[in-house]
């Protein structure tokens, strides 16, 4: 029971991070129907931005308040990563709109390769580890053999995720931008006819997706304290799995999928084998796509002839 509880906490923490990345996949797929392959690498870039900004703040400017530093890191990382998201869409995807179906996918793979190697070239291939940013926590349950520990990091990750998702949900459901975004998702041509600036909406979708990936990047760095240039691919695929599992195109689905994937990964590592945890994630991806391609909360696609 105590092991179970501890794994549940760990799984939800990891799942929050996957959920945040998954939203980027699901929104982009919803609006232009492409798998934004580079999204995982955008997440990795944001982790690096967070790392460097954190180092500047603490080592050079001597800011001692961790909460204040983390807030600045979060804001800066979100802004700069959003710029990356915007630039990528502008350079690599927008010229391909209306081109043949494979083109955006190949272009996205190219961006993904570019980003990871860009970071490798500019920052070096080694793992970068930070000093622990936030320590301590509360003991939830204590038995003679096992202690269930909820660290402040985990509380912070879940809290930030919850707050941001609420804000994001409000943005999509209640604001003019959200309405435009949902309209474009349903029918781009019709939305354009009704006076919605489709290009701008798509751009903003990428910007928002990248900003949420940046939040995930900051939280990832906070949680693990280490990042390397190749860290984008596997979390990216897992987040995509989460998006598909939840039903691609559905925002609550992405979060739900993220939590499920996080829990499965953690429990699999705890009870079965840690070596095969990525195999488990990839297998779930394949199984979900084959047997229930519309996911848990998605709508089934109807093929028109």
């Amino acid at each position: 029971m105590d092991v179970f509880l501890q794994q549940l906490i760990n799984g939800l923490t990891l799942g929050s991070i996957y959920g945040l990345i998954a939203i980027g996949y699901t929104m982009v797929f919803g609006i232009i129907g492409m798998v934004n392959f580079a999204h995982g690498d955008v997440f990795m870039v944001s982790s690096f931005i967070a790392l460097i900004v954190f180092l500047i703040l603490t080592a050079w400017l001597g800011i001692s308040s961790v909460a204040f530093a983390l807030l600045i890191v979060l804001v800066v990382a979100m802004a700069l990563t959003a710029l990356w998201g915007w630039a990528i869409e502008r350079v690599a995807y927008r010229p391909l709109r209306g081109s043949f179906r494979l083109a955006p996918l190949i272009s996205a793979i190219g961006v993904s390769i570019f980003l990871s190697n860009f970071v490798q070239v500019t920052q070096g291939a080694r793992n970068k580890s930070t000093p622990p940013m936030l320590e301590g926590g509360v003991v939830l349950m204590q038995s003679e053999s096992y202690t269930v520990f909820l660290s402040y990091k985990q509380v912070l990750i879940m809290a930030v995720t919850a707050v941001l998702l609420t804000g994001f949900w409000y943005l999509v459901q209640r604001t003019p931008f959200g309405r435009a975004q949902r309209a474009c998702e349903q029918d781009r041509k019709m939305a354009a006819l009704l006076g919605i600036d489709v290009d701008r909406t798509i751009s903003l979708t990428f910007v928002l997706g990248a900003a949420l990936a940046a939040v995930a990047g900051v939280l990832y760095l906070l949680y693990y304290g280490v990042v390397s240039f190749s860290d984008g691919f596997v979390p990216g695929v897992k987040a995509f799995t989460a998006a598909v599992l939840g039903g691609i195109g559905s925002l609550p689905g992405a979060v739900l999928g993220g939590l499920i994937i996080g829990l499965i990964e953690v429990f699999w590592s705890a009870y079965f084998s840690i070596e095969y945890k990525d195999v488990a994630a990839f297998s779930i991806l394949a199984i979900v796509l084959i047997f229930m391609p519309s996911g848990i909360l998605g709508r089934a696609e109807v093929e028109k002839v």
């Binding site: 350079v91 690599a92 010229p95 391909l96 081109s99 083109a103 955006p104 190949i106 272009s107 793979i109 190219g110 961006v111 993904s112 390769i113 570019f114 980003l115 190697n117 860009f118 070239v121």
Partner: peptide, 15 residues
């Protein structure tokens, strides 16, 4: 820079 350019080339050729 081999792979860096490779990624860029993939995007460029699609565009």
């Amino acid at each position: 820079y081999r792979l860096l350019l490779f990624g860029l080339a993939m995007v460029a050729m699609m565009v």
